[in-house]
Structures are given as structure tokens and as C-alpha cells.
């Protein structure tokens, strides 16, 4: 111990210098948004590359589960294609053009290379970035339901605010009743979230499914989010306290779809006129 102190004393100038330089960089990163962004961008790039390599090893062990999910996905998509084909059958030799709304949303697949579910604010990293057309603010879903919203995008990677994040609210609707409400994660259990702003006159049932409302330009309508597991209301409250079980299993999400809304700019600019 004494030797350690002697050593530190011998190099005390250098040690002071290094400590103060670290303090300086901490100040710089804390106060200048530009430096903060540049630093986190570079570190994100490096870290994402490391995660990519790690996932390459891990996903080999996940292949059975992933195969199952993919075959379920295939079945769902085939079903969708079949339904579309039927709607395109010529009637009276006139071709029925697909509705404009079918061109609104495009889905881009991506693989999750980093995830967390145990923190207060959880983020997911995926292996697609600005190169493939991703932008911050795009919605992210998995086979089972809503996953989150894109936070930042670099050239080859992107980070996503997971639904398990204290700042994320999803505009949603109770399917059976068409009642609009909001989903927020409470920060404890990665499988449950809360449903807010459901007024007391609504007749709820356990098992009601909650889907996206399509109201903001992030998610199309009808993407499942979860199902109600329990609800109650105090005498003096105007909204229910509702707990829902999330449809998407965040601890095992491996492939996600990013939603590109081709009509987003037009919808957002016309909504801006409201303000």
C-alpha cells in the first residue's frame, strides 16, 4: 500500500495532469451539444460494430427459435399476399387498381444486435441505418407487436427507444370499443405496461386487445400492442388504472420491421397548419 502511495507521489504531476484532463473532457462533453453528439456518434459506431460481432456468435445458438418465428411470419405474409391477389382479380375485365393507402407504409426488416429490458430507459440497436433509408422517428414493430420508435441513425446502425422506456407513449385504441388511449411503460416489469386516459364510462373486459390507433404518422393502425390483464378505478378518479400484458416479448426480440410512412411529410405539414 505504501509502495502504491510512493509510486503515485513519484508521478504526482502526471497523475494530476491526467485527472484534470479527464475533468476537462467531462466538462466539454457535458456542456457542448456538438461534442456530445460527435463523441456518442463515434462511440456508437465502434460499439455497434462490436455488438454486431457478438451477435453473430450468439444468434447461431438462437437458430431454432428464430426459425420458428420466421416460419410463422412467412405464413402471415403469404396470407396477406393471397388476400391482396384476390382484391386484384379483374372484374368485368376492368382492372381494380390497388388502393392508394396500400402504398402508404413500407416495411424494412432489420436484425436486433443489442437490447436491454432491465433498465429504466431501454434502447435497442439494429443493423440497418441511414444507408437503407432509416430516419429518426420511424416506428418499429416485431412479429408480435409494437417495439418502439427510432432514436438516432448513423450510416449503418440505428438506436431505437424501446417501448420499455420511460419517455415513450404510444397512441392506441381498445379494439372492441374503438376507445382511444395511451400506452406507457411503468418501469418495472418488461412484460407489462399501463394504459392511460381511459374514461370511467367505458365498459372494459379482461382480455381486450389494444392496437395502435394510426393517429400519429409513426404506426399504421391495427398493430397489436397488448391485452388487458387487470383494471380498477378509485371513487374519485376519472380514468381507469389498467395493466396490460405486452404482445411483443422484449427479451427475445430478434428481427424487427421498420415502418416507413410515405405520407408522413404531407400529413405532418398539414397538421402543422392546425397550430
Amino acid at each position: 500500500m505504501r509502495q502504491l502511495f510512493l509510486l503515485i507521489y513519484q508521478y504526482r504531476t502526471f497523475v494530476t495532469f491526467v485527472l484534470l484532463e479527464i475533468a476537462c473532457f467531462w466538462l466539454i462533453l457535458g456542456s457542448s451539444k456538438y461534442h456530445n453528439a460527435a463523441f456518442f456518434n463515434t462511440s456508437n459506431n465502434i460499439i455497434a460494430n462490436v455488438y454486431s460481432t457478438k451477435q453473430n456468435v450468439y444468434r447461431y445458438f438462437n437458430l431454432i427459435q428464430v426459425n420458428d418465428d420466421l416460419s410463422k411470419e412467412n405464413a402471415f405474409l403469404r396470407d396477406l399476399i393471397d388476400r391482396q391477389k384476390i382484391s386484384e382479380l379483374p372484374i368485368d375485365s376492368l382492372e381494380v387498381k390497388p388502393l392508394d393507402s396500400l402504398n402508404q407504409f413500407e416495411f424494412i426488416t432489420a436484425k436486433v444486435i443489442n437490447n436491454s429490458t432491465r433498465k429504466i430507459n431501454n434502447y435497442i440497436t439494429i443493423n440497418k441505418g441511414a444507408k437503407e433509408g432509416l430516419q429518426p422517428g420511424m416506428g418499429v414493430i416485431s412479429t408480435n407487436g409494437v417495439v418502439g420508435v427510432i432514436k438516432t441513425v448513423s450510416n449503418k446502425f440505428a438506436t431505437i427507444y424501446s417501448l420499455l422506456h420511460s419517455d415513450i407513449y404510444i397512441s392506441s385504441v381498445i379494439n372492441r370499443l374503438n376507445v382511444f388511449c395511451t400506452i406507457k411503460w411503468q418501469g418495472e416489469n418488461p412484460q407489462n405496461a399501463s394504459l392511460l386516459y381511459v374514461p370511467r364510462h367505458v365498459k372494459l373486459q379482461v382480455g381486450d386487445s389494444i392496437m395502435t390507433s394510426g393517429f400519429n404518422s409513426i404506426f399504421p393502425e391495427g398493430i397489436p400492442i397488448g391485452t388487458i390483464t387487470e383494471f380498477d378505478i378509485d371513487e374519485n378518479q376519472s380514468f381507469y388504472n389498467i395493466s396490460i400484458k405486452l404482445a411483443s416479448d422484449f427479451s427475445s426480440v430478434s428481427y424487427v420491421y421498420l415502418i416507413k410512412n410515405n405520407f408522413k411529410q404531407e400529413k405532418d405539414s398539414i397538421e402543422l397548419l392546425n397550430e
Binding site: 476537462c24 473532457f25 466539454i28 457542448s32
Partner: peptide, 12 residues
Amino acid sequence: NSLGVNAAATLF
């Protein structure tokens, strides 16, 4: 208004 930049250079 550039907290830490001059400090880093000067202490160097």
C-alpha cells in the same frame, strides 16, 4: 462559453 476547451489546452 466553451466549458473545458481552454482548460484542457492550458493545463496541457
